[in-house]
Simulated scan of single mutants.
Amino acid sequence: MGCKMQRRMALRRKLHILRTLTKSKSVRKSSIIMDAFLYIYKLKLQVEAIKREYQYLINHIQEVKVEKLGTGYLIVTVTCKKGEELLVSILEAFEKLNLNVVQTRVPCKHFFGMEAIVEANNIHEATLKEAILQVIQNHAEKYT
C-alpha cells in the first residue's frame, strides 16, 4: 500500500515539474503530457530555424577590413566562407602587390578568418581591400 502511494506522489511531483516547465494551465495528466509534447515540438522548430539561419550566415558572410596601424603598417581582416587554398590565394595577392606580411593569424573553425599585419609600401587601403575581394570572388567562382 505504501509503495503505491509513493509512486502516485512521485507521478504527481513529476507532472507538476512538467507543468511548470511547459507553463501548462492544464490539470489532467493527459493534457499536461500533450502540452509538453507541443512545447517540445515548438522548441524543435526553433532549433531548426536557428540552424538554417546559422547555415545562411556561414554561406553568405564575406567581410574584408583594411585599417592603418601606425606608420607603414596595415591590419587586414578577412572573414568569409571556408574554401580550399584561400589562404594561399590571399598570400599570393599580397606578394603581387609587393607587401611583406609581418604577422598573421588564421582561425578556420566554421568559416575562414584571417588577421594579418602587413608593411604598407605606398599602397592605399582601398586598393588592397579591392584586391582581396577580387581574390575571394575568383576563388568562390573557381570552387563552386
Results as ranks from 00 to 15, higher is better:
A49C: 03
Q62D: 06
K68S: 14
P107Q: 02
Y73N: 08
A126S: 15
V78F: 02
E95V: 04
A126T: 15
V135H: 01
N100V: 08
D35V: 01
L87A: 01
E115P: 00
K68H: 14
I117D: 02
E119R: 05
L57Y: 02
V47F: 03
L45G: 12
E115W: 06
Q62R: 10
L45A: 04
K65A: 03
N98S: 15
L43W: 13
E119G: 00
Q134C: 09
E130W: 02
A120R: 10
V88G: 07
L133G: 13
N121P: 01
K51T: 08
P107S: 01
G83T: 04
K96E: 11
T127N: 02
C108Q: 11
L128D: 04
E84R: 14
I123V: 14
L57V: 14
V106Q: 06
E85Q: 11
E48R: 11
L91C: 10
F111D: 04
A116G: 08
V78G: 00
E85D: 10
I90N: 03
Q137Y: 12
A120E: 10
V66L: 01
C80H: 00
G70I: 07
N100C: 11
T79L: 11
K44H: 12
C108P: 00
E84C: 14
E92I: 00
K109A: 11
R105Q: 02
E92N: 15
I50T: 07
E84H: 12
I75D: 04
H124K: 15
I61D: 03
L45F: 01
K42N: 04
Y39C: 13
E125T: 15
L38M: 10
